[in-house]
Design a protein around this nucleic acid. Structure first.
Lengths: 205, 205
DNA sequence: CAGCCAATGTAGGCGTCGCCAACAATGCTG
DNA sequence: CAGCATTGTTGGCGACGCCTACATTGGCTG
């Protein structure tokens, strides 16, 4: 559960690796990025790290647990990226929306496979609550933006969730289309501008 | 390649199954719907159909080929559903958009796993051209709607692709969120109305 | 400081999977 | 009706996920 703040001795591999859990996650994400999700194998991961094929099971009870942890760390980083994207941005709706949208799409581009993974942990009935909380953390950011916009009279009235919903949909949908390579490539750049303008039209007074 | 109009003898199983390819696709889609994509195994499929474990390879060179075929049939049916959704709908933008959005989201709900599959065949560099063409067929439908709206003066000016892009994004994004169970359930019904209104605001003059 | 014990890693095995090659039955076609 | 492409069968290979039994380690406690 708690994976931050571990001994992390960084010592030469004797018998105990010292930080196998973190090493597994790191290597797994590299593999995910470079060779796609299909190429993720616990045994190969273990080989890569010079460890026996059953060692990973000490840290992740099964493959899905590793994927969940990967997704969780993805949500954490995404939250950080989105949060940082608002630093120094004037508190006006257009600027804020533009910043967040660009940050989200950028993250999606840089972490396509990971994002896929993050969103496909989904209908797991007992998805770890840590994961659920992580997904909530970044949606809260958008909700706050919309709420503040409403308070400043920049955003139309209406239930917060209902106002923010289409923003999420558009944001997520565009990122997914872009990442999936379903957009004519020349649309890529200008397309983002168009989408941002569309969102702003949709939620403005 | 051509899979429609086959002999389809429907005879008792002797040695040759008679319609194994279609049977594989049908059963595969059931499994996909009922037990998720992870549970799809060629060998199990073969067992279910009372056929040897290597028989499927006569019809699909590998597992991915079967998935591609599944995705292709999904796009075909989706195009049909979306096309049909416009039957008898007045040629006015709001009604047409509402019809198509509801149809798309409905299809997504009824075929969640299949839709996932359809969109993850994506970055396959040599995705069969039949597949590419199928994806294009339904996007053309939305493009046509927007173009007609522009012709009638109901839709803002601008490059067709750029005007339609955010519509796709919102549509796709909402369907994905809904299907992934990432929406508070009470938002489900009214949420669609909200999203439709949002889209209309975004593309209207 | 000694010894115990939980944590961590290893070795091997089981069943399943995708894919391949060799062989067998079928039915279309000349 | 003979030949042959099509379609199915059998068996095998290597890889995978997961399990159990065992080995090594290092921290904690008496």
């Amino acid at each position: 559960m708690t994976d931050t703040l571990r001994p992390m001795p960084t010592r030469t591999r004797s018998y105990h690796h010292g930080d196998l859990r973190a090493a597994l996650l790191t290597r797994a994400e590299e593999t995910l990025r470079e060779k796609g999700p299909g190429a993720l194998s616990l045994r190969e991961l273990a080989r890569d790290l010079g460890v026996s094929h059953a060692a990973p099971s000490r840290h992740f009870k099964d493959k899905q647990a590793l994927l969940d942890a990967l997704a969780l760390s993805g949500f954490d980083r995404m939250s950080a990226v989105l949060g940082a994207s608002l630093d120094g941005v004037p508190e006006k709706l257009p600027e804020q929306v533009e910043a967040v949208v660009r940050a989200y799409v950028g993250f999606a581009r840089d972490n396509a496979a990971l994002l896929d993974l993050m969103y496909s942990v989904k209908h797991d009935p007992e998805a770890s609550d840590a994961l659920l909380e992580a997904t909530q953390r970044w949606s809260d950011l958008v909700l706050r933006l919309v709420a503040e916009g409403q308070a400043r009279g920049e955003v139309r009235e209406g239930s917060l969730e209902h106002t923010a919903l289409p923003v999420f949909a558009t944001l997520h949908g565009y990122a997914d289309l872009a990442v999936s390579g379903m957009l004519p490539p020349e649309m890529d750049e200008h397309g983002l501008d168009v989408v941002i303008a569309f969102i702003l039209r949709g939620i403005r007074l």
